[in-house]
Design a protein around this nucleic acid. Structure first.
Lengths: 251, 251
DNA sequence: CAATCAGTGTTATTTTTCTAACATTTTCTG
DNA sequence: CAGAAAATGTTAGAAAAATAACACTGATTG
């Protein structure tokens, strides 16, 4: 996926941040491109946005999640994420204190945590917090602040201090872009501070990123590749050339 | 619309109560009728359910969807609480920064805020935060910390400092007990710190409490009656004897 | 019992959405 | 700048959904 394509997707995601839907034609007009281009953007995207009968909606919105069948095309991406998270959770040990980043990539990870007895989860994302709160035996620490609908997360200048006070064993990070020379980047600048704080504090830094993130640069750069210890991805060896730094776990 | 038609719609609405979508074919199978019948049901119905590209979803622009809380609906006092909150919201002015306490009492208040253009809501409760996050024009500040499932709220020792940094116009407080001599109390000790911090900072302190809270003492005492400026309640004059301090608004 | 009518199913037609193919424009590269 | 590659637009056809038309069923009623 290319730069402009991603920018359009981000803009649309922002528009739909509070939920709701957008007709494909309106989305195209909003971005000043043809409907076909929006379709292609969606196909190349990470599945956060999805098309339902000509209407663009947030895939994560429980309002539109299918009750019954799961045979959607969109599910392909979701299946990849589940697979990656299943690999990633192998690193977790009983008693850990985990940091979980925002976005949709790491949502399946929370589901995988249900089998642990004693875990503390630290996050600044509302969707992650809601998922964790449903698991009664997990301890949850939410880093507060001003809410950013675009990423469903909180943050302010106090987040560094708040994270520093915690003893985090493992940080699970997500990134919208992962580039050999430009390192790790995300869409929103407000995500940078908590990500950096987590990287600084955590014992082990684990990045989970599907193949579509590879070779991509996003506006907000938050770390170098060398700053993470492990990369969990479904990208094949061929796609990884020039990527140095983390050990790689293929999902 | 006829009896059976309404019954099918009710059943489908029930299936989608928790959100989610249903393909028309599945909906038809679920009701044991043809797709065409479902289409006709929907056309005759009240528009609660709608068809989006072959998928049945709960209708209306979710952006302005009413904020429902499941706990709230189970609550016998729900109607009273809604009435009290409608009275309480009269105090709110455009541009305010509001503190909203935890519990179910103040949940209807959030729904009432949908019509304001410019508000900032400060809270330490997960249920309140989720409700506010769905309203686009509202700014949300969540006070983070360790999650307490018992009250669906967060809190730690840093909450005082976090609240003190904010300029709060009006604090909407809830209490589990309200007693002439023993003042205001709640169930959980972890609620005391944020409540006290809000009382200390806010310009106007508004306590919302239905009649069942009157004359009751709970384990965690957090304030005196005199520390709130206004009490919104449905209790009758007779029940209020000995209650001194706040001005009273009857809902 | 025939006529009627509401409720539903079936089929056909129109409209919309999706997909693929190819044309055009823009951006990159040597 | 020429040529290649990428991005986007346009068009046409396939698939799916929405609508309309008509047929069937079973109950009601005069």
């Amino acid at each position: 996926m290319n730069e402009r394509s991603a920018r359009r997707l981000a803009r649309l995601a922002d528009t739909l941040a509070q939920g709701g839907s957008l007709r494909l034609a309106d989305a195209a007009a909003l971005c000043g491109v043809s409907e076909m281009t929006i379709r292609r953007d969606l196909a190349a995207g990470d599945g956060e946005l999805t098309l339902m009968g000509g209407h663009l909606v947030r895939a994560g919105d429980p309002r539109y999640a299918p009750v019954y069948d799961l045979d959607d095309q969109r599910d392909r991406q979701a299946a990849a994420k589940r697979r990656l998270c299943r690999r990633a959770v192998e690193r977790v040990e009983e008693g850990d204190t985990l940091f979980i980043d925002c976005g949709t990539t790491l949502m399946p990870l929370v589901a995988e945590l249900a089998n642990f007895r004693e875990l503390t989860v630290v996050t600044y994302a509302l969707n992650v917090a809601n998922a964790v709160a449903r698991l009664p035996h997990l301890r949850l620490v939410l880093l507060g602040g001003v809410y950013h609908a675009s990423s469903q997360s909180f943050g302010d200048e106090a987040v560094d201090a708040a994270i520093a006070r915690l003893g985090i064993n493992r940080a699970f990070l997500s990134a919208a872009g992962l580039h050999p020379r430009h390192g790790l980047s995300c869409f929103h600048f407000h995500e940078v501070a908590p990500k950096r704080a987590a990287i600084a504090t955590a014992g082990e830094r684990i990045l989970v990123a599907d193949a579509t993130k590879l070779g991509v640069i996003r506006p907000a750069r938050f770390a170098e590749l060398e700053e993470v210890d492990l990369l969990v991805t479904d990208a094949r060896e061929g796609d990884m050339e020039g990527l140095q730094g983390p050990r790689v776990l293929h999902g």
